[in-house]
Nucleic acid binder design. Structure first.
Lengths: 156, 156
DNA sequence: CTACGAGTTGGAGCCGACTCTAGATCAAGT
DNA sequence: ACTTGATCTAGAGTCGGCTCCAACTCGTAG
C-alpha cells in the first residue's frame, strides 16, 4: 500500500477516478486541472499522485453538483497559490452553502413523495380508485419565485 | 380564497408554477401532462386547477432530479388509471430511494468540503502557505466504482 | 520488421432540458 | 379601426457535459 507510484497513465487514472479517458482529456482542455499534466516521452500524459488526488476532489465537487466553470475557477485560484486563498476559501464556503440548501430541498421533496406513496399504498390496499389529491397544504407561494437557478459562477 | 377559478391561461400558470410559458408548451409536447389541456375558443390553452397541481408535482420531481422521460412514464401510468397503479407506486418508491441515496451522497460531499474549509481556514489563520493535503483518510475505494450514473427510465 | 494495443490530437456529434424566433391569430381597450 | 399584448404553431438554437471518431505515434513482443 506504500506504493506511492510516481506517474500513472491516463488509463490508470481513469480506472482509479472513475472518469473515462475521454473525460480526463476533456477536463484538461477545460482547464479543470490544478497543474498542467506532465508529459512523458512521446507526449503522453503522466499523472502524479497529486493530480489523482485533485481529480478525486473534482469528482466529489461534480457529484455535489458543482458545474465545471466553478471548478475551473477553483483550479485557477489554486494555481495562484497564496494570492487566491481568501477567495478560494470563500468559494468553498459558497459551495458548502449550496450543497446544504440542496440537501434541504431534496429532503423536502422526499417528504412530499413519501406522503404520496403513503396515500397510494393505502388506496391500493383498500381497492379504491381515482386520482389522488396529492399536493400537501398549499405552500403559500402565490408567484414571484424563481424556479431555482442552481449554482452560478462567473464566466471563465 | 374560495376562488377555485375554472381555467387559467398559460401565462397565469407560468406565474404560479415558476415555469416559463415556453416550458409549459414544451412539457405538453413531451407528454409530461397527465391529461391533455383543454382549449378555449381560438385554440388557447385553458388549464384546470388539477393541471396546475400536476405541474407543481412535476416541478417537485424535476427539482428532485427526476428526468423528463421518467416523469412522462409517470404521467402515462396516471393516464392509465387503475391499471397502472401498482407500477406507479413502484416508480414512486424507486424515486424515493433515488432521492434518499442522493441525499446521502450530498451529505458525504458536505462533510468533505467542510473538512477542507476547516483546513484552509486554519492555515490562513496561522499564515502558513502551500498546498493543502486534502483528501480525508483514504476511503478505501481503490477502483472499480462507477461514477454514479443517475437515474434511468425506459425510452419513451 | 511488423503487428498490436494503448496513447495522442483536434474536432464532430449527442443528449437532456430548455429557450428563443418568426409569423399568424385573437381579445380587449381607446 | 387600430394598436397592444398575450397566445398560437413549428422549428431552430443554446448550453452543459460528455462521448466518439479519424488519423497518427509509441513501445513492446514475436
Amino acid at each position: 500500500m506504500a506504493e506511492t507510484n510516481q506517474g500513472l497513465s491516463i488509463g490508470q487514472v481513469a480506472e482509479r477516478t472513475g472518469l473515462s479517458v475521454h473525460t480526463l482529456r476533456f477536463y484538461e482542455r477545460e482547464g479543470i486541472l490544478a497543474a498542467p499534466v506532465r508529459r512523458g516521452p512521446g507526449g503522453r500524459r503522466v499523472y502524479s499522485d497529486g493530480d489523482v488526488e485533485w481529480l478525486h476532489l473534482c469528482v466529489n465537487l461534480r457529484s455535489a453538483g458543482m458545474p465545471l466553470p466553478a471548478i475551473r475557477q477553483y483550479a485557477e485560484l489554486v494555481r495562484q497559490g497564496a494570492d487566491g486563498e481568501e477567495h478560494l476559501l470563500a468559494l468553498l464556503r459558497q459551495h458548502r452553502d449550496q450543497v446544504t440548501t440542496e440537501i434541504e430541498q431534496l429532503t423536502e421533496s422526499l417528504g412530499l413523495i413519501t406522503r404520496k406513496i403513503g396515500a397510494y399504498a393505502e388506496r391500493l390496499a383498500r381497492g379504491v380508485t381515482g386520482p389522488v389529491r396529492c399536493t400537501p397544504p398549499p405552500t403559500g407561494r402565490p408567484s414571484g419565485e424563481e424556479p431555482r437557478r442552481s449554482w452560478r459562477a462567473g464566466p471563465a
